[in-house]
Nucleic acid binder design. Sequence first.
RNA 1: GUGCGUGUAGCUCAGUUGGAUAGAGCGUUGGCCUCCGGAGCCAAAGGUCGCAGGUUCGAAUCCUGCCACGCAUACCA
Length: 576
Amino acid sequence: MNEIRALIVELVTEQLVQLKVKADRSEVEKALGRPPTPDLGDYALGCFVWAKTLRRSPASIAADLAGRLSERLGEYPLLREIAAVGPYLNIRLDSAQVARLVVERCLSGGLIERQPGQGKTVVIDFSSPNVAKPFGIGHLRSTVIGAAIGRIYRELGYQVVGINHLGDWGTQFGKLMAAWLSWGDEETFREQPIAHLYELYVRFHREEEADPGLTQVARDWFKRLEDGDRQARDLWRRFREASLAEFERIYRRMGVRFEHVWGEAFYEDQIGPTVERIRKAGILEESEGAMVVRVEEYYPDTSPCLILRADGASLYTTRDIAAVLDRWERFHFDRMLYVTGADQADHFRKVFGVLKRLQLPFADRCEHVPFGRIHGISTRKGTLVFLEDVFDRARELSLELMRDREMTDPEREVEAERIGVGAVVFFDLSKERIKDSSFNWEAILQITGRTGPGLQYTQVRLKSLQARYLERFGELPAPEVVRWDLLREPELMGLVRDLGEYEQVVFRAAQSYEPAILSRYLLDLADGFNTFYSSGQRIVSEDAPLSAARVTLCRALLAVLLSGMRLLGVPAPDRM
RNA sequence: GUGCGUGUAGCUCAGUUGGAUAGAGCGUUGGCCUCCGGAGCCAAAGGUCGCAGGUUCGAAUCCUGCCACGCAUACCA
């Protein structure tokens, strides 16, 4: 589809030059859009920008261009009609030609041909749950968004290094140890390690409010941990291992993988050298007993970045700096992405500010990819929603709906799991990252409308149609022999046009780190198809050539849906 | 107070980066199963695009100022 755009831009620019306008391609490219309704054409060009220099009305320019271009229509089989409507130049493509071009490409596996990432590395820091806390719905966002961005970049040829920056260090461990020593129970821990630790964590925060002295106790314990105290280390190891086992189960369920699980503790021995490096650069200052680096030079209104606490202990900011230095040494990344909540924006300004003050050339390659909060859940208050519970309920719901389907029980289980996970994952990826939301069981479990299951259902239907075609005609038609001129319906032509934009959509999603762009595109494709499907016209009928054309288009659509769903991490059930 | 973010239908959200009559889903109301899977489709109702200015042929989109909400604002992560 890109080459079609390029062709139009080329032709129009040529004509504008003949009209004595200093027009360049990018100007035309910018003006070239789509008409509000498909009956006007496939592309539209508003002629406003040239009105001033030509001192003519946009409408007369459009008319002039339409006349000149129409004369040359015969040379370009892809173009069928060019007409002026008011100030707009509307262009209609030859749908059969376009269908051939687009569908054949989809079916030859060339969905994404450009590989801008060749030879480039992008490191993505995502998921990063805190050890000793349950994997909550809050961690869903970082995990799902980060994993999707990773798959998208990999698809574009990038070398992707996903790192799970586990929250396995810091004062929270001091809190946990203090709580464990006061109220911990071996037996409960053995049976339900995470649940027990979580309980302790919540209790500590409750008691801390009444007794602020506990805060210092927790700090002391963390200091002991950092100093290598034996008892502290042993506890830390136990807590960490128990958590990892649980996280692993959830990641497997979501099909999420990491190249590395390097938590904060991993960088522990690099904290000293990192602080030393900052000190040698001459940017470390003492302030109110703590050591800081000022970053206003790069980020006005941002308070100094705290490197060491007054008691000499490190902070997570320090560890993030140590981590990025380490990652640079290892990967020489072209981009380093941090997929974390928007509430950490200030934190990353400070980290990046320190990198800039260190004059590090890769400082500008680091980016925070923020996402909005989910309201109504709080780890500390104990109102957390467990991700596994959400998956389970979504699965049960699907199971219920499939009760009457003729399937074996194991098959039903497998598909219900795919649907449940898909529902939850897609829900999170269907809105812009930055938007806040409040947790709502009804919304996340919704299965009608523009939802994951809705998308999956369309995809199942396409698979089923393909089977239906095979039943009747024996084998799928070769795309080369399909008579594309038989596809006349506007819904199908719209579908063809949209299929041609898949690559561009993936690019846009990558560029803006916004999987939702892809999600919505897939839903639009599904909607377009469903409209035709329900119109009373059949895909598979007695008319062999017509059925062949339609079913081949369906195959192309299915290929795009499957590709997009895979990038998002939404499973594709075969039946539901 | 300052910084960042968000305000579009009752609710949840789109709006192709400034273009033609602002669109979906949920919910509500009314239709569509003698034919490919109804987790679907069609239709109706529902809008001062937070408010007020400004920029220009043209603004939900860009600029300024307000308002509301959220987050952040150094020894948590």
